[in-house]
Design a protein around this nucleic acid. Structure first.
Lengths: 188, 188
DNA sequence: CTAAAGTCTAAACAAATGTTATCGTGCTGA
DNA sequence: TCAGCACGATAACATTTGTTTAGACTTTAG
């Protein structure tokens, strides 16, 4: 749990007593490669903090086709967060792409944090702001860069991504077909 | 300022004294149609709350082409928020599409709110969460819906948009050319 | 009131991207 | 260990989307 505590302290001020109480609502979980951490249809009851490993977030469209919309790895918080907030059935599949170790923050943990931690709301604000920055940057790049430029940016957004994730999932993230990405790479 | 106070109270609990202090850091501003509220290159120093009117957010790419990435109208908070948070030079142009009346929350106002309002961080969290929900939904729709479906969804995301905004800006928001949108509409 | 600018549609053509199929390679699980 | 499977490249072809140009109509500014 040390990495988890460190990540919390990077966002807000706290102390051992508060952190230990928070941790008492949390649980370490392990997943095998390809295992599913969260699936659509069920109301998500936890937010994950990744200690080790990498996962992808997938949305399945009306025709049953999967689209990779996000990657997350070490020291990041990740969840089907919209559905978690709204307490609605999930929309996304979270799938491990490597063996993973995560800290699961239950809804209880988060509610308790907002209510009783001195900077609970600030923690929520920081996490929400982080993801807003990520999404905003992504939207900006979508409008102002070509697919090839967006491909080349991926390494800066997700370090090591090319070493850890198959190319067809990157193509899916970019919104293009694997065949097309292969072509673009060839043409430089 | 009544609409502004109401909007704050819809997100957090406060009182007359707090709200009046917050408002003392704010200012009502008016803009004519096509006037610019915020431009790239300058560090944004304010967040706007829209009392009346509608605006668009524009990003200009390396070739000088404009892309409409967002619309905002009555009772919404809007800014070049990433740059505002990071205190970096802005990336977006905010342009009035109608005569507008807005409340300008200065950086002072927001810093003061985070520091001294009882639920200041919660306010920031709620605003960030709202925009996260919006962006997340948008990304999901981008991956799982066709341009035509996304066009048809716009009325639910931005009510009255078709009555208030020229079609070529909607095409730009959808990431397609005006000619192509016209074609899609024709084919039903 | 009127000229200029903005807006939408349309058509013909060009470019970008998707689809399907095949092949070679390396990994992997029974 | 080896048969199957996942992965990536490639080619041929199909479809979608962009570009350019033109014309009719509407709005706007002087």
């Amino acid at each position: 749990m040390d990495e988890f505590k460190t990540a919390v302290l990077a966002l807000i001020e706290s102390d051992e007593s508060e952190l230990n109480q928070l941790v008492s609502f949390c649980k370490t979980k392990n997943f095998k490669k390809n295992e599913v951490l969260s699936q659509p249809g069920k109301v998500p009851q936890e937010v994950f903090f990744i200690v080790k490993g990498i996962l992808r977030v997938v949305v399945t469209d009306a025709k049953g086709v999967d689209h990779t919309i996000h990657f997350a790895s070490e020291n990041q918080f990740v969840a089907d967060y919209s559905s978690f907030m709204l307490q609605q059935p999930g929309m996304y599949t979270l799938q491990a792409l490597e063996p993973m170790e995560v800290v699961s923050m239950s809804r209880q943990a988060i509610d308790w944090g907002y209510q009783f931690m001195r900077q609970g709301d600030k923690f929520g604000r920081k996490v929400a702001e982080f993801y807003f920055l990520y999404q905003d940057n992504r939207v900006k790049n979508y409008y102002s860069r070509s697919p090839l430029e967006r491909y080349e940016l991926m390494e800066t957004i997700f370090p090591q991504i090319h070493q850890r994730v198959p190319q067809h999932m990157i193509a899916s993230y970019l919104g293009i077909t694997p065949v097309h990405l292969s072509r673009l790479r060839k043409e430089h």
